[in-house]
Design a protein around this nucleic acid. Sequence first.
DNA 1: CTGACGATTCACT
DNA 2: GTGAATCGTCAGC
Length: 205
Amino acid sequence: MQQSWHKLPPSFYTHKNVITVARRLIGKILVTRFDGILTAGRIVETEAYNGVGDKASHAYGGRRTARTEVMYAEGGVAYVYLCYGIHHLFNVVSNTKDTPHAILVRGVEPLTGIPDMLLRTGKKKADYTLTRGPGNVSKALGIATHHTTTSLFGDELFIAEDGFSYPAKDIIATPRIGVDYAGEDAMLPYRFIVKGNRYVSGRQQ
DNA sequence: CTGACGATTCACT
DNA sequence: GTGAATCGTCAGC
C-alpha cells in the first residue's frame, strides 16, 4: 500500500497558478505521521486562495501578519490556523517566495489509520462525517495550529501520489464555501470537488 | 489593552 | 433551519 506512495516534489508546489495546483491536488493523498501514528486520506475537495488580489484570502491586499507570514513562503509548507476558536484548518502554501498562494483542503476520503481517526475525533463509526469538511479533516488527521510552517518534504506531514486519479469529467469547479464576505470574488470557481463523492462538504448533488 | 469576529461544526427545535 | 460553542488574531484606542 504505502510503499507505492511518492511524495510530491517541490516543483508541484512552486507552480505559478494556484488554481491549477488546487485542481491537481484532487486525488492525491494527504499523509500524517505524528508520534508514529500513520493516517492518510485521498483529497476530494480543495479551495484555492489566489494571493493579494483575492478578497477571500487572508493575504488580500498584501496583508502580512505573524499568522499569515507563512503564506509568503516558498510553496511546500503547511498553513494551519484556528477558525471560530475551535477548528484547525489545513492549507497548502504554493507558488514561490513572496507570492501568498494557498489551498485549503476541505475533504478527504479515509485510506489509512481509520481507527486512529475515530480515536482523535471521538466518533464511534467511520461514516462520511469522519473527514468531510476542513475542520474534520484536520481533527481526524491530527493536524493542529502548531503544525503551521511545517515542511511538506519531511516525514510527519506530506502529500503523496499513488498513480490513482479521478476521471477528468468527475472533477468539477464550483464557487467557494463560507466566503460571502469576499463580494464578487465569492463567485469565482476556485473550489474543486469530486462529483458525487460522499466526503465532499456542503449539499450533495 | 480591549473588543469584535471568523475559509465551521454539531446539537437541537 | 437555527443558534451556540470558543479563542487566537488583529485593528483600534
